[in-house]
Computed example of a mutant assay.
Amino acid sequence: MSHAAYVFDAYGTLFDVHAAVRRHAPAMGADGQAFSDLWRAKQLEYSWIRTLMGTYTDFWTLTEQSLDYAFARFPSADRTLKTALLDAYWHLDCYPEVPGVLKHLKDRGARIAILSNGTPQMLQSAVKKAGLDLIIDDIFSVETVKSFKTAPAVYDMVTTTYRLYPDAVSFQSSNRWDIAGATKFGFRTVWINRGNMPDEYADYGPSLILPSLESL
């Protein structure tokens, strides 16, 4: 079934959030993956807590704050890498199938967009680095509504801008909690379960589960 718009989460769906630490793996040592996992977990946790409190701090600031926490939890990690790790976040690798899949959907006449917690500057940098700037039509950042996912106002940016009913939008995310929020909003949702994780949020299940974007 084709849709008028295909909207993608950015981090973990199009772009590999662990690429920053992986680029400095030798210097990070044996705790590198655990460090990266914690950095990502705290980055998301901080966004949820601020939304629940009714406050807003941009995602770049939360990315730096969560990195500081990861360094505090892993004192063996070399703190001199902080600047390099943050810089790497502006140039994350996209997953190998991403350019071909997005181009195929665009060639079929669909609108292609990103809907992300990231700041516009972070997202534009990642998109340009990955060579996706001629494929992606629009970048929707939570900066516009000053709330993070899964606030309904975030998903509403797409339907309001495109003047579409939610079920005309196919939304893809690797984050199951994001899929739950988008499903509740009314999007047709596709969970990109890259890590073969167990399902959750059974009352807000996706329309489809895929291991990557390749079969979209």
Rank of each mutant, 00 (worst) to 15 (best):
S2D: 12
V7A: 07
D9S: 09
A10L: 14
A10G: 13
T13K: 03
V17H: 04
A19P: 00
A20F: 01
V21E: 04
R23P: 03
H24A: 01
A25W: 10
P26S: 10
Q33S: 10
Q33A: 12
A34R: 14
A34W: 03
F35V: 07
S36Y: 02
D37L: 07
D37F: 04
D37P: 03
D37W: 00
L38M: 09
R40P: 09
L44F: 14
S47K: 09
S47T: 15
T51R: 11
L52Q: 10
G54H: 03
Y56D: 13
T63V: 13
E64Y: 04
D68L: 11
Y69M: 07
P75S: 03
S76Y: 02
L81C: 02
A84D: 12
L86N: 05
D87E: 15
D87I: 04
W90M: 14
H91G: 02
H91M: 06
C94S: 15
L102K: 06
K103A: 14
K103C: 01
G109I: 10
A110C: 08
R111M: 09
I114H: 04
I114F: 04
N117M: 13
T119R: 10
P120C: 07
Q121P: 02
A126K: 06
G131V: 01
I136Y: 01
D137R: 01
I139M: 13
F140V: 02
F148C: 05
F148D: 02
P152N: 07
A153K: 11
A153I: 12
A153C: 10
D156V: 00
D156R: 14
V158W: 00
T161W: 05
Y162C: 05
Y162M: 14
L164W: 03
D167I: 00
A168M: 12
A168E: 15
F171T: 12
F171S: 04
R176E: 11
R176Q: 06
D178S: 09
D178T: 11
A180Q: 04
G181K: 07
A182V: 11
T183H: 12
T183E: 07
I192P: 05
N193E: 06
M197S: 09
E200F: 03
Y201P: 02
Y204L: 14
S207N: 15
P211Q: 02
P211V: 05
E214W: 01
